[in-house]
Simulated assay, not measured.
Amino acid sequence: FVWGALSKKIGKKVVYFLGMSLWIIAAAGLFFLQPGQIILMYVMAVMAGVGVSTAYLIPWSMIPDVIELDELQTGQRREGIFYGFMVLLQKFGLAFGLFLVGNALQVAGFKESVAGSPLPIQPESALFAIRIAVGPIPTVCLILGLVLTYFYPITREMHAEIMLKLKERQEKKGNFN
């Protein structure tokens, strides 16, 4: 609810940049986190949580704006295509990410735990792979996302103009019926 209210006030793009910046700081910081830095870990976890919430909220709130722009340009409502494509890309991204991380951990010598037995001590190579998986890789991906978001063309003003043109189009159609 905080991000939703803030996005109405300052815009979705700015809110996305704020949230992703917090997540980037947290992800980068997790790479350097040392054993025993519990309070710092919780601070970074909260920062990452705020960023993750933004990453899930803002792109989904941008889709209706894109759908309305598409309607203005094509005269068609194609919500199903946009939402279906978004879900498909999200599922592919999650599956691909899990595949890569799982294989990287296996190559790094990660030792799986077995129920009922003590946790295994991980080799340094596995710990380093985990650090890379939670720090630099997400940081680079998030920065690339910010670059792409920078070029997102729909501002609050442009959206208001789109809505006005769609309303005018609807009124013209109503007059002809």
Rank of each mutant, 00 (worst) to 15 (best):
S53L: 13
A95D: 06
Y152G: 00
L166V: 07
A160R: 15
V15P: 01
F32A: 13
Q73I: 03
I162N: 05
I39R: 08
A129E: 05
G4K: 00
A45T: 10
V114R: 14
L142M: 15
E124C: 01
L100F: 12
V43T: 03
S7M: 15
R131W: 10
V140K: 04
V107T: 15
F17R: 02
V87F: 15
V114G: 11
M86Y: 15
Y16Q: 01
K167V: 05
R156K: 15
K13V: 04
Q34P: 05
Y152P: 01
Q170P: 03
G109M: 06
L127C: 04
A95H: 13
F32Q: 07
A27L: 05
L22N: 02
A108N: 12
L18T: 06
L22M: 07
Y16M: 04
G84A: 11
M86C: 09
E157Y: 02
T139S: 14
L40F: 08
A95T: 13
M41V: 02
D65T: 03
K12Q: 02
V2M: 07
M41Y: 09
T155I: 06
Y42N: 06
G11C: 11
V87T: 15
V66Q: 00
I132T: 06
L164F: 08
N177P: 04
I154A: 01
L105M: 15
G29P: 09
G49W: 07
L22A: 03
G109I: 04
I58C: 12
F128I: 14
S113Q: 03
R169S: 03
K111T: 13
A115C: 05
V46W: 04
L22H: 00
L119I: 04
I81M: 13
P120K: 10
I10W: 13
E171L: 13
K8L: 08
A55R: 02
E161K: 15
P118Q: 10
V101S: 10
F1V: 10
G116S: 10
A115E: 13
I58N: 07
P123L: 01
L146Y: 08
Q106G: 07
Q122Y: 08
L72H: 09
L142E: 08
Y16F: 11
S61P: 02
G80H: 11
F1E: 04
F1P: 10
V14L: 13
I137S: 06
F1C: 05
G75V: 09
F85E: 07
K173P: 00
P123M: 01
K8R: 13
V46K: 06
F176D: 06
T139A: 14
N177Y: 03
Y42M: 04
V101A: 14
M20W: 05
F92S: 09
A45K: 11
N175R: 14
V101W: 11
V43D: 07
R78T: 04
A104L: 12
K9Y: 06
M47Q: 02
K172Y: 03
M62T: 06
T54C: 15
P59L: 00
G75L: 12
G49D: 08
R169P: 02
I132F: 06
D70F: 12
L148K: 03
A133S: 09
